[in-house]
């Protein structure tokens, strides 16, 4: 059965490494729903790439095996499969509205613990952290209230407990 899987990949942060990872995924016919990447170990230059993709468990296993074949890839795991993964995403959401709709958007943002980081008389920019599902829900609620623009970071993920990737 196809479902969303979050995969974390630790790589040597060398030129072209992102292109290698992404090229492999697209070249073998897989899709990426979201992607985030940054260096996580400045001393030994290791980056963490997290992406969300659609597929069944077997497909994801094959994808991971292919990823591990890349020379700069140190580790790759399916965070979703371990069922211990914590997934978070950040979104910046611009809502343009006046009157009741403006008030309602502010009230709802409070319920979601979103922060107002910019405001004019007819707009807000909200900053929201949480699971992708929570962000989707917030966006759904904002749509009739004057949703104008969204920027999302893509999912970052980490496993619970003391174990290290």
């Amino acid at each position: 059965m196809e479902s969303k899987h979050t995969v974390s990949v630790l790589v040597d942060n060398e030129p072209g490494v992102l292109a290698r990872v992404i090229g492999l995924i697209s070249g073998r016919g897989y899709n990426i729903d979201s992607l985030s990447v940054a260096e996580v170990d400045a001393e030994s230059h290791i980056s963490r790439i997290t992406f969300v993709t659609l597929g069944n468990e077997e497909t994801i296993n094959k994808m991971i095996a292919q990823l591990q074949k890349l020379i700069p890839v140190k580790k790759a795991i399916n965070i979703t499969l371990d069922k211990k993964g914590i997934e978070r995403e950040m979104a910046l959401v611009k809502v343009v509205a006046t009157g009741d709709k403006r008030v309602e958007s502010l009230r709802l943002s409070d319920a979601f613990r979103a922060k107002v980081i910019d405001t004019t008389h007819d707009s807000f920019v909200f900053e929201l952290n949480g699971s992708p599902v929570k962000i989707d829900a917030f966006i759904d609620l904002m749509t009739p209230l004057g949703l104008s623009e969204i920027s999302r970071t893509g999912v970052v993920a980490i496993a619970r407990g003391s174990e290290k990737l």
Partner: peptide, 16 residues
Amino acid sequence: AVGITRPCTKHNWLVK
């Protein structure tokens, strides 16, 4: 060159 040969090499390097 590294872009074109990326999928058809085991690994490649551009020396900077």
